[in-house]
Structures are given as structure tokens and as C-alpha cells.
Design a protein around this nucleic acid. Structure first.
Length: 418
DNA sequence: TCTGGGGTCCTAGGACCC
DNA sequence: TCTGGGGTCCTAGGACCC
């Protein structure tokens, strides 16, 4: 059997852990730049706050209903996530971290699954303060579905099992097909035209019809819904591409300013590469003039640079980023968003005949630089082109909470009379 | 005037996810 | 005025080859 452990309203719950007076109150967490809503407590959902709603559009509602607003604090959420995952890892033989607030687990040889899950759930709440929902089923897709039931219906007490064909049919019959993991908007509207409305309808279709119309991806979901596991369990897998990007609170027109930003994004990519012990051969810099319809309508521009030798070294990635920026940057254009993407990632670098970099020396330098950190574990040594960059200068984060778990000066204090 | 058949590799973009 | 950031996988179609 497979289990899915899903943290309830994760970001909102993280804020609540360190501010218990928010218990039972509506909370929303905003995206970077305080742009739109990316997490809501149940109370905020009940107030009618939609997921993804632009903040300025709900400001009246926030005032009327006295909703507590937070800017996102990824340092805090990332650390809380790590704590939850560690607790789960200690209890199960195999775990796959699927996202910041979810993980899949393999449960073999456990006699009372329900009991096991109930205890795990209690352990997570006790250890972190984060409430979770647990779904148990023979496939990942069904486990996801089970977890939504566990979350939605109080009677389940946070744990739902789909462990026989009768429960499976019942669950699929009461679920709209677009609520299924892997069925998005496009596939849903196409399915609806064929009269397929519930997950059950979909599961009863002929497999060849599914494959013909919705390719191997659709077929995989179909099999999973019918209890045939076909989405592999991945332990820790190295990322195949790594992105660092941000939207700004204003339009930037200066090349030098963008260079400093892009250099810092490249340095962040370097850090992420080093963390997973890999190197990238391709680096791409993109600039958007607008973020509202990012991708399609935005007037976007990107340039790709291929390194002679795959690298994770900040100075080389920054050099490549500068080159790429020179290619995309347009004098007189105002940019609202920028990003660096590294890809073509490998574990080992293929040496080049024409390599002119002294890699031995470079690695020694990197090792020394890694050791020089401040008390919060941030790097103190930087490459000159990173300047005195502060992301905060380009972003709005009016409602940000403290770094309770990762910064000594933010540690919560408890007094006897409170 | 007439212009094959079969294959590989790469990339951009779509669709989906949290 | 103000709409996030970071991923994965798949497919179609172009470039190229013999």
C-alpha cells in the first residue's frame, strides 16, 4: 500500500504554529511581492477567499472579515517542511518527498494500517504543530484521492483508506474527474465533451480509447485509478533543471542593476547545484516585461549559453549569466521579472580538450568560501559582480513573519505570565 | 515535367503539478 | 497601481542523415 501525507493549508499552518492566537482565525499567505493568495486557512476559505486571488482584489474582504495576512516566508516553511519529513522518514521504510508539503510513503508488512497512520499523524502534530491528512491506497493517484477525503470529511479524523474495489468505486463515483491528480483543465474540458464527468466514468472507459485520446499520460492515470500502480516511486532524485527567478516591485531599466540581480540568481543556482552535488552545462537568462500573463502574452526574451565544461562554480555561472544578459538586454526596456535557469545537469563533468580553467584551484577556493558564513549560515564571501545585492530592495514583503526556526535573533520567547 | 523512404536527435511549447 | 516561483514529462515538428 502507498500512503500520501499532506500538510493541511501548509503555509498558513506554519504561521499559526508560532502565533497560537491565530487558532480559529482566518489567515492568508501571499506570494512574493505580496501579489496573490497562495495559501489559506480553512476559516479564510470559508470567508470566500479564492486560491490565487490578487491581493488588491480581496483587500475589502480582508478588512471586513478581519483576515490575518502574511507575506510568504520560505525560510520558515522550508525548515518546517524538513522537520515534518524527518519525522515521517523515521517511521517508514521508504519515503518520496513530492513537494514542500507532501510526501509519499511505502507501507509494507503493517498489520493495522489505519492505526499506524493515526499514530503517525499524532506524532507529526506533537513534533511540529502541523496538522496533516493521510491517504492510503494501492496506487499514488488513489492515495492522493484518499487524502482529499481525509482532509474534507471530519469523520475520517485525518486518515482515509481506499483498500478494496467497493471503496474505490464509491470514491471515484463522488469525485469529479478534474479533481484527479494528472487531469488538468484542458483534459477535463475534452473529457466533458465526451460525457466523462466523474472519475468513475473515466475509469470505466476502454483503455485503448484513453490512450488514443490522452496519450500515455492519460493511460497511466486510468490504470492508477483502476488500482494498477504505474507511477514509480522515486527516492531522492537530482533535479534536471534549476530555476531562480523573481518578479520586481517596479520596472527595471538599468543594465548594471539587472546584472547584479542576475549574478545573484546565478550564484543561487550554483548553491543549489552544489547542494545536490551536480553540475550544469547550459545556463539561460530570461527577462519579462510583464508578469501578468507570464509566458504566453508577456513580451519575453531569453538567451542560452552553453559552457565548455559543465560546472557548478559561482564564478563560471555568473560569467555565463553576464554573457546571456548582454544578449537579451534591450536598452530602454523596463523589465518586471528576471530569472536564471541551469539545465543539462550531470553528476560528473566531461573534461574538454580546450579547458583553460584551473579547476583544482577553483575548487580549493570554493571550499574555503563555503566555510566563511555568518551565524545564520549565510555565505559571507561573494563574487564582485554580485555587489551589495538585497532582494528586499526589489520586492514588497509588507507582512512577513520572523525566521523563528533558522535565525537566532528570531527565536520565539515565552514568558510565564503569557 | 518528373522529386522516396526511413530514421535519429533536438527543441519549443503544451499540459500538468504544488 | 497592484496577478508567484519552481518543477516534470510528453509531443510535434524541424533539421539532418543515408
Amino acid at each position: 500500500m502507498i500512503g500520501l501525507i499532506d500538510c493541511n493549508n501548509f503555509y498558513a499552518s506554519c504561521e499559526r504554529v508560532f502565533n497560537p492566537s491565530l487558532q480559529g482565525k482566518p489567515i492568508v499567505v501571499l506570494s512574493n511581492n505580496d501579489g496573490c493568495v497562495i495559501a489559506r486557512s480553512n476559516e479564510a476559505k470559508a470567508c470566500g477567499v479564492e486560491m490565487g486571488a490578487p491581493f488588491f482584489k480581496i483587500s475589502d474582504l480582508v478588512r471586513q472579515k478581519n483576515i490575518h495576512v502574511f507575506s510568504s516566508n520560505y525560510t520558515l516553511y522550508g525548515d518546517m517542511s524538513r522537520r515534518v519529513m524527518t519525522l515521517v522518514r523515521d517511521s517508514v521504510p521508504q519515503l518520496e518527498v513530492y513537494s514542500i508539503d507532501e510526501c509519499f510513503v511505502v507501507l509494507e508488512g503493517i498489520t493495522n494500517l489505519k492505526q499506524f497512520a493515526v499514530e503517525l499523524r499524532a506524532k507529526i502534530i506533537k513534533g511540529t504543530g502541523i496538522p496533516v491528512s493521510i491517504g492510503l491506497a494501492p496506487t499514488k493517484t488513489l492515495a492522493k484521492l484518499a487524502a482529499t477525503f481525509a482532509k474534507k470529511y471530519k469523520a475520517y479524523d485525518g486518515v482515509c483508506l481506499i483498500d478494496n474495489p467497493e471503496k474505490r468505486s464509491k470514491a471515484l463515483q463522488v469525485t469529479a474527474v478534474n479533481k484527479i491528480w494528472g487531469i488538468g483543465r484542458r483534459t477535463f474540458s475534452s473529457l466533458a465533451q465526451h460525457g466523462v464527468l466523474t472519475a468513475f466514468d473515466f475509469s470505466q472507459k476502454d483503455s485503448s480509447w484513453v490512450q488514443h485520446n490522452y496519450t500515455v499520460t492519460g493511460l497511466r492515470t486510468w490504470k492508477e485509478l483502476n488500482g494498477i500502480p504505474c507511477i514509480d516511486f522515486e527516492s531522492v532524485s537530482a533535479k534536471k533543471s534549476i530555476t531562480t527567478s523573481r518578479s520586481f516591485n517596479r520596472k527595471l531599466t538599468s543594465f548594471d542593476e539587472l546584472l547584479e540581480i542576475v549574478a545573484n540568481f546565478a550564484a543561487a543556482c550554483s548553491r543549489k547545484l552544489l547542494e545536490q552535488k551536480s553540475m550544469a552545462k547550459t545556463l539561460l537568462v530570461f527577462l519579462y516585461t510583464d508578469t501578468r500573463y507570464a509566458g504566453s502574452n508577456a513580451q519575453s526574451n531569453a538567451a542560452k549559453v552553453t559552457l565548455d565544461v559543465a560546472s557548478s562554480h559561482p564564478s563560471e555561472l555568473i560569467k555565463a549569466a553576464r554573457l546571456a544578459l548582454q544578449l537579451v538586454f534591450n536598452q530602454g526596456t523596463g523589465y518586471k521579472k528576471a530569472g536564471v535557469i541551469v539545465s543539462d545537469i550531470t553528476g560528473v563533468a566531461q573534461a574538454s580538450l580546450f579547458d583553460v580553467v584551473d579547476r583544482e584551484r577553483q575548487n580549493r577556493l570554493l571550499k574555503v568560501a563555503e566555510q566563511i558564513k555568518n551565524k545564520n549560515g549565510e555565505d559571507m564571501l561573494k563574487i564582485a559582480s554580485q555587489g551589495s545585492f538585497e532582494l528586499g530592495n526589489y520586492m514588497d514583503r509588507k507582512f512577513v513573519s520572523k525566521h523563528y526556526t533558522t535565525n537566532f535573533s528570531d527565536i520565539i520567547s515565552v514568558s510565564a505570565d503569557s
